[in-house]
Amino acid sequence: MKPVAHRLLLLRHAEAAPPEGGDLGRDADLARPLTATGHQIARQRGESMRRAGLIPDLVLCSPALRTRQTYAGLLPFGRNARPEIRIEPTLYLAAPDELLARLRATRDSVHTILLVGHNPGLPALARYLNGVEAALDSDFALATLATFRVEAEERESIALAWAGLGPKTSWLESFSQS
């Protein structure tokens, strides 16, 4: 059985406004919108993704306003691009093992996943998947995009791409900070 290439795109949200009134609670943090600069950077990130042909089949997005607005700024991906979009509460400030478990639960018919989320979970997941790139030694700056090629792992004549996701099945293709 020949390995099938899949792609994982890890995107940190763009610049967000500080919480209103200095409120550090969960609700206030979830409600933080992008700044004008954040909106502009999200649009620029979308343009660069289109030029590179990075079109997701599935978008997994934290419910935070800043992540949803970052994703919206990426659009449109193209005339025929209609990714499935899932806003999932468990992705808000998720730990790397939680992110990995969610990715591993994805059906293999999905070839490209865009995960829009937060520090510190995204960079920790990227370091786990890649394990060697110096660029991944620190947290992701705002609007950082890490692109991984994921190859299917063969087990008992069945090719598993997402269920077998890990450091020996994924390779960093690009790492772009705004």
Rank of each mutant, 00 (worst) to 15 (best):
K2I: 09
P3M: 08
P3R: 11
V4N: 04
V4W: 10
A5E: 11
A5I: 03
L8Q: 11
L10M: 10
H13N: 01
H13C: 01
E15K: 15
A16G: 04
A16Q: 08
A16V: 03
A17M: 10
P19D: 10
P19K: 07
E20Q: 12
E20I: 05
G22V: 07
D23Y: 05
G25K: 02
G25A: 06
R26W: 08
R26M: 07
R26V: 08
D27F: 04
D27M: 07
A28Q: 06
A28F: 06
A28Y: 04
L30D: 13
A31H: 03
R32V: 00
P33R: 06
L34I: 05
G38E: 12
G38V: 06
G38H: 06
G38Y: 09
G38K: 02
H39K: 14
Q40G: 09
I41D: 15
A42G: 08
R43F: 11
Q44S: 15
G46H: 06
E47N: 09
E47Q: 13
S48A: 15
M49R: 04
R50S: 09
A52T: 05
A52E: 11
G53Q: 07
L54Y: 07
L54P: 00
L54E: 15
I55L: 13
P56T: 02
V59K: 03
L60R: 01
P63G: 14
A64N: 12
T67V: 11
T67M: 05
Q69M: 15
G73V: 09
L74W: 05
L74F: 11
R79E: 15
A81S: 14
A81W: 07
R82H: 09
R82T: 03
R82A: 15
I85D: 00
R86Q: 15
R86M: 12
R86I: 00
I87F: 05
E88M: 05
T90K: 10
T90G: 14
L91K: 04
L91S: 00
A95D: 12
A95T: 02
P96Q: 14
P96L: 03
P96V: 01
E98H: 06
L99N: 00
R102D: 08
A105Y: 02
L114R: 06
L115R: 00
H118S: 00
H118Y: 03
H118P: 04
P120C: 05
L122Y: 06
L125H: 09
Y128N: 08
N130E: 15
N130Y: 08
V132K: 14
A135W: 05
S138K: 10
D139A: 12
A143N: 15
A143W: 03
T144A: 13
L145V: 10
T147R: 14
T147G: 02
T147M: 03
R149F: 01
A152Y: 02
E154A: 11
R155Y: 04
R155H: 13
E156C: 01
S157R: 14
A159M: 13
L160R: 14
A161M: 06
A161H: 02
P167T: 11
P167K: 14
P167R: 14
L172S: 03
L172W: 07
E173D: 15
S174M: 02
F175W: 10
S176L: 13
Q177R: 15
S178Y: 04
